[in-house]
Design a binder for these strands. Structure first.
Lengths: 219, 219, 219, 219
DNA sequence: AATGAATGAGGGTTCATTCAT
DNA sequence: CATGAATGAACCCTCATTCAT
């Protein structure tokens, strides 16, 4: 069995510095990459805003690429922690899916910058970069979705002829779009066109509406 | 009825050159922007590959931004033409939705580069650029979705308590993700994780699967 | 005896076009050169604003340099016409000098753009250009000043030991500075520092003040 | 009393480099700007002639504008130092004015390039630039002239009805023209027309001649 | 380990001039 | 004679990365 995705993008030296310094670098770098995108971000500016020298930054990360990937990895880590609250065994599938939608919205609201970084990563230009990211993480989620739905099928919570891989893909799509619709200003303006200014803000309504459709789709 | 928004991003001079030259510029520029992303694309390289001088390129488009937006606009135009085959009045809603999914997949396959440009435009960095694009287009699609579903509701093709705006948003999300899953290498690798190498290739199966879920969600 | 300075900077074709067209070209070119300076002025922009093609402009003037010099020459021409009102034989030297100061101020106010072009020409960068301008004109003025003062000396209007060349140089300096102080925004801000906002505007006072000082200097 | 205005146009990094390097940059930049004018000067050429990289140059000055203004400021500084020898309290007004004329001529001979830069700055095109220069300097000179003449008036060294602001303006004009006549090749050719090749070279004669006229004008 | 000065290729854009139509 | 599209060298400025201190 594969080890849990844990590519390391920083040098050893980075582990030796104080947590405060680490945090500052992360905070600044994430904000810059999120706001400017990978290509337009200036590494020297990050060092400056983080109150360290460029030399130091390069002693922690061997390239702009690695710094960026370290940020993305950190985002996955936080997502993993957030998903620890999913409890896939508790309640019905739809209880679980409801929690999933809530976690997704919360993550997108609290860690908007990470979501913007993912969007950047989904860009064709950065496909080379995204390939360096541990795809194990994604595989894990795929399997988790599939297992969740397969179990639900066995328990009779969803209809017996549900195409599990297709349903998992379908569910994943909606989760991704939900995340984008909350985090990205581009997709946020899209959601407003459909649900209006207020509808886009009312997270409960949004989640409820999607959940109802998913329920019917799966039942 | 609103006029179709059609901001013009090229200078008058561009209208005067031969269609072959125009085509070449479009083809080259689209391919470059799609492959490299807006920021990493080199305008001089585009001129070179299109066998024109930089001076000429700048006599057709006043800036890199405008060239990029002209390409994006062209993509919308082609999408509009493709959607002319939708015939929203023919058959049931689900016939229409099926055609929509087909058109989406075909567009993503035939005009992959445009799709990649849209992904780039959805990036936070380029939010300034996407705002310059005629948003009327998007509004039109939103309304089309809503009208389609409202009509279906009246005809009793979908359940009577369907939340039309939410359902339209839901449908749009799936269409967008379908497009991305076909066009972007990032999302293509995602779809493979769910449906396997073969499943991701089998467009009919993919469309059929999604359609089945949508049908149940709306019925 | 030398012919009156009449270097020609335009091609023959320029003489064949309508006076309106000629005027428009002059007006536009002068305004552009005055506002932007020689180096920063865009020849293509002049053609555009004058509603002629660049090709035509180049058929009238063989280079940017020539166009610029033609404008400068035109300015000298107008100055010559303005100085026709000087009547160096009428009244005392000081009457003549007073008229000179008036003509200078009027010229600077009515033909500000020409003055700004002269300032540009006095720049070291453009010394190559200014050398191409007929220096006969300047020589004429120098001689006129000298003759004026020599005659005054003979008539006893100025003191008998007046150093005529030096006095002519002195007078010329003041005339030049008066012109600059009216025409150029840089020197206009200087004059305000000395005479205040109002004092700088009051041309009569300005001329009177200078005249009084000149009178004493020469008497 | 007002503090001497001293806008700083260089970055901190510039203060850290060796005096030799600083000097070389100054020398090269001043020479280039003086010879070519602001607009026609090539920043990369300055870097090359100063044996530094463009990157370095831009780490010292954030733009061409700032580099230019730093040079202009340096010139004002040197002028200030030169004027320290003026000793406005020693001797009569005319002694002081004589020293002023000497200092002016010396400055124009020794720091010709700075004078050429000022001429460029007086150009309409660069009015935006000259506004960024500390205008306190100019104000200081204006006040110095006025105070000098007011004191002389009280002491009875000049006639009792002398219009001090006007006389100060008059004096300033002559000083400026003297500077230009020595430094600029354009005005140098003018002076030759009045005083002949030799007369233009004989600084003592020139200063003596002007002083005599000023004396009479003020007495 | 930390610093930050130095590098210089590269990128977007301008514009005087030419020349085919 | 008039047009204006085409050219491409040149210019200002950026920034990832290195390396001497």
């Amino acid at each position: 069995m594969k080890k849990k995705g844990s590519a390391v993008f920083h040098k050893n030296t980075f582990d030796k510095i104080s947590p405060e310094k680490k945090d500052k670098i992360f905070t600044v770098a994430i904000a810059e990459f999120a706001a400017m995108g990978y290509n337009a971000t200036n590494i020297n500016m990050i060092a400056q805003k983080a109150d360290i020298s460029i030399g130091s930054l390069y002693s922690y990360f061997s390239s702009k690429e690695d710094l960026f990937l370290a940020m993305a990895e950190k985002g996955y880590e936080l997502l993993g922690k957030a998903l620890a609250e999913l409890h896939p065994e508790e309640g019905t599938v739809f209880d679980v899916i409801e929690r999933l939608l809530h976690i997704t919205v919360n993550y997108a609201e609290q860690h908007t910058d990470f979501c913007l970084i993912y969007i950047d990563l989904s860009t064709e230009t950065l496909s080379g970069l995204s390939e360096r990211l541990s795809d194990n993480v994604e595989t894990d989620y795929v399997n988790a979705y599939k297992e969740l739905l397969a179990a639900a099928k066995e328990k009779g919570e969803v209809r017996s002829d549900l195409d599990v891989p297709m349903a998992a893909f379908f569910l994943d799509n909606l989760v991704v779009m939900l995340q984008l619709s909350v985090a990205s200003s581009y997709y946020r303006s899209r959601i407003k066109l459909y649900l209006g200014e207020d509808g886009a803000q009312d997270r409960e309504m949004l989640i409820g509406g999607l959940l109802a459709l998913i329920k019917r789709a799966f039942s």
